[in-house]
Nucleic acid binder design. Structure first.
Length: 474
RNA sequence: CGAGGAGUAGCGCAGUUUGGUAGCGCGCUUGGUUCGGGACCAAGAGGUCGUGGGUUCAAAUCCCGUCUCCUCGACCA
């Protein structure tokens, strides 16, 4: 098969980005469709990425003092209605269990779309004294939201995530935790996903149902659209009051706690695919790549080649590198294309010529360039290359994002700016102007810029209260 | 939920207009030759045509229902 025929198997990344995305996630075996609408099977290659995300995040949570727990999947319907805004926000997309054990249930049970209510209920039982605070727990679990349209990783009926929930004695502590977790996410996105993000507070329109304030982490995808990649929410006393999370303070008075929550999901896998991918397929950041290095033997049946490959594999494994030796019967060219599509950060070609010269040929997925290294230096050269690749992926994505953020002064400029990028614009704070932008440019307020620089509202011309990043969003 | 498109072998498709024995390429299996950017030869295996009903002597093909997927809009981690 000719090369150009192969490339046609994946839709053009510039011309048809959505199709490129679905082609890539299915062909690289990250995911397959489940038999029920909106469900996905996360296959081993995709799940391994999730495990690396989990491992890295879980370590950070534990270092911050958060403990893991697990709360039930099923939530009594009555819990959902206790917080007025929350039920209004989630009611349209919950799945409800009405029958079990061969009969109709007394009270319908909601399959959790998020766990603020059931965790609020439990925290209400557990919190009695100021000595019980802060209470900071996290769970890794699945949730279900019956969305109208779905796409693997980006929006599915069921998805995997972590949700952290904390209670504090004071508003200040809860707000601080909300910002700290946002910062944690941001650092994680940078160092593990090699993905730059914009962080900031969400507008009232965009905030979580039941929150006082929501903060978001937004990443720019290849087509310039924004993907909400993580959120943290300050709940004030809304959920504490709904679920009776009360404690006796040092002064002997009974007070409501202040709660907050935060979450990221398997959507992050979609985010890194759409941030780093190119026409050849996936480009996986080394920290989460299931296979960091693939060794492709050249002329594998020639004497000494496979032995040399196996020896190299062992040395790299001992150096802590996730390495695979592809000794299948496919031709080298086939393997090159296959592993490039699968986004493996570094490929090593090892053949008779290399072995004789004491060298190895390396191919970097981020630059698609080949170079040579000394075979004897593999343990140091390969990890160095992997970290360089990670840094380069971040730098490329950061540069791209910055180049596509425009500060605009009119709705016309805004409209032009959101076709392929983000815009920064002044906003008076009124819902009507936010709605007008949506109608005019199909763009929404992603997050507010902490460094508020604009003086007038993009829409009504009144004094701006905030500077907002607007974008079209997934 | 609205508009459009699709479902036939593991993958990509033809066949449907005009009903009549299930086809092609790739992949897969076996043997052999190959190997520095998707190699080649030979022999094989593999499909109740998404699904349920209907029309008919006969349905992949016509009719009705239903499920799933894709693209674009309205709602969302």
């Amino acid at each position: 098969m000719a090369k150009n025929e192969f490339v046609k198997e994946i839709a053009d990344i510039e011309e048809n980005f959505p199709q490129w995305y679905t082609d890539v996630v299915v062909k690289t075996k990250l995911v397959d469709y489940g038999p029920v609408k909106g469900t996905m099977v996360i296959r081993p290659y995709g799940y391994a990425i999730w495990e690396h995300i989990q491992r890295e995040l879980d370590r950070r949570f534990k270092e911050a003092g958060v403990e893991n727990a697990y709360f039930p999947l099923l939530i009594p319907m009555s819990f959902m209605t206790k917080e007025a805004e929350h039920v209004e926000g989630f009611a349209p997309e919950v799945a409800v269990v009405t029958h079990a054990g061969g009969g109709k249930l007394e009270e319908p049970l909601v399959v959790r779309p998020t766990s603020e209510t059931i965790i609020g209920h439990m925290y209400g039982k557990w919190v009695e004294s100021w000595r019980d605070l802060p209470l900071r727990e996290n769970q890794w679990c699945n949730v279900m939201r019956w969305e109208k349209t779905t796409r693997p990783f980006l929006r599915t009926s069921e998805f995997l995530w972590q949700e952290g929930h904390s209670v504090f004695a004071s508003a200040e502590e809860a707000e601080e935790e909300t910002l700290n977790m946002l910062a944690l996410y941001r650092e994680f996105a940078k160092t593990v996903l090699c993905m730059p993000v914009l962080t900031g507070r969400k507008t009232e329109k965009e905030k979580f149902a039941g929150a006082v304030a929501t903060y978001g982490m937004e990443a720019m995808m290849h087509d310039g659209k924004s993907l909400q990649s993580g959120t943290t929410h300050y709940m004030g006393q809304n959920f504490a009051k709904a679920f009776g999370v009360q404690f006796t303070d040092k002064d002997g008075t009974l007070k409501y706690g202040y709660t907050m929550s935060y979450g990221v999901s398997t959507r992050l896998i979609g985010a890194l695919i759409m941030t780093h991918g190119d026409q050849r397929g996936l480009v996986l950041p080394p920290p989460v790549a299931p296979v960091q290095v693939v060794i492709v033997p050249i002329a594998a049946k020639k004497e000494g080649v496979l032995e040399a490959c196996n020896a190299l594999k062992g040395r790299l494994q001992n150096a802590g590198v996730r390495v695979t030796l592809d000794d299948s019967d496919n031709s080298p060219g086939w393997k090159f294309n296959e592993w490039e599509m699968k986004g493996v950060p570094l490929r090593i070609e090892l053949g008779p010529r290399d072995i004789e010269a004491g060298k190895l040929t390396v191919f970097r997925r981020d630059t698609c360039e080949k170079s040579e290294e000394l075979l004897s230096d593999a343990e140091t050269a390969v990890p160095n290359l992997l970290s360089q690749i990670g840094e380069n992926l971040y730098a490329k994505a950061e540069k791209r994002m910055q180049e596509r953020i425009r500060t605009v002064k009119s709705l016309e400029e805004l409209l032009a700016g959101v076709e392929g990028g983000f815009v920064r614009a002044g906003w008076c704070g009124e819902r009507a102007c936010e709605d007008r932008v949506k109608e005019f440019a199909q763009a929404t307020a992603r997050v507010m810029d902490e460094t508020h620089t604009e003086s007038v509202c993009i829409c009504c011309g009144k004094p701006a209260k905030h500077t907002v990043f607007f974008a079209r969003a997934y």
